[in-house]
């Protein structure tokens, strides 16, 4: 059974924001991942205590390296270690990539609506990147709820993709502080309706973030007539708000 676990090398760490970090993991063998999949990480303390947590794959650098982005939860058991202490050269135990449901498949030609709360942008970014790399014709739209401008992950890449002909549009909702001239406030049903593909476009919808965020947003969409079977969700845990 333990064959499911690989030992991977930490080959890169990069500050993504003041509280989040992108970590490159090199696998012992070539590794393939589908956009939206996640890894399970297992940490073992010197006295044998173990903790397992899941992290979405943010991007792949073929043939053998995957990146994850971890947000530090101040009272968390695992994330502060990953964001503050883990260093290049360390090793980790990893299971996956796993998951076949919360996955964007290029065979699907429908428009894609992505909705992220905070660190929930990570697997959606994997979809955005796959869409761009494939020069896929389906229109993509990302609605990204964050605290403030400094908390945006992958900011430059998102800006340049949204400004290009890649077919990606990005809308931000700033919950605590916004750039000059932009409104501040939590996502609500009205803002949601005005920033996503309408139900008549029959988009494939992917929502990811804290459990409370996903719960609320998916409820609004179903109430507005999006068929539940077109909505796929990834709850990260936690009843925290909309980013």
């Amino acid at each position: 059974m333990s064959s499911a676990w690989h030992i991977v090398d930490v080959v890169a760490v990069q500050e993504e924001t003041a509280t989040a970090r992108t970590i490159g993991l090199r696998f012992p063998l070539p590794v393939r991942s589908l956009p939206g999949q996640h890894l399970d990480l297992r940490l073992t303390a010197p006295d044998g205590y173990q903790a397992v947590r899941s992290y979405s794959v943010a991007s792949a650098s073929p043939p053998d390296t995957l990146e994850i982005t971890v947000e530090e939860l101040p009272d968390g058991e695992v994330s502060p270690y990953l964001v503050r202490k883990l260093a290049v050269g360390d090793q980790l135990e990893v299971r996956g990539p796993v998951g076949g449901w919360f996955v964007w498949r290029p065979e699907d030609a429908s428009p894609v609506q992505l909705i992220a709360g905070g660190s929930g942008v990570v697997p959606l970014m994997a979809m955005v990147r796959a869409h761009d790399q494939a020069r896929h014709p389906a229109p993509f739209r990302l609605l990204y709820s964050v605290r403030d401008p400094e908390s945006v992950y992958y900011r430059q890449e998102l800006e340049s993709l949204a400004g290009s002909s890649s077919g990606l549009a990005v809308d931000y909702v700033y919950t605590r502080r916004a750039p000059a001239g932009r409104p501040v406030g939590r996502l609500d049903a009205r803002i949601l309706a005005s920033s996503v593909f309408g139900p008549e476009a029959d988009p494939a919808v992917f929502i990811c973030g804290a459990t409370g965020f996903v719960e609320t947003v998916s409820g609004w969409l179903v109430d507005s007539g999006y068929p539940p079977e077109r909505i796929k969700t990834e709850r990260y845990g936690g009843m925290g708000g909309t980013g």
Binding site: M1, A4, Q37, H38, L39, D40, V52, S54, R95, G96, V98, G99, G100, W101, F102, T211, G212, E215, T233, E234, R235, Y236, G237, G238, M239
Partner: peptide, 17 residues
């Protein structure tokens, strides 16, 4: 207050064993 739970997606790892 809602409930703290995940989607069944998170079972992918344990079931992959």
């Amino acid at each position: 207050l809602g409930e703290d739970y995940l989607d069944g997606n998170a079972l992918a790892g344990p079931l992959s064993e």
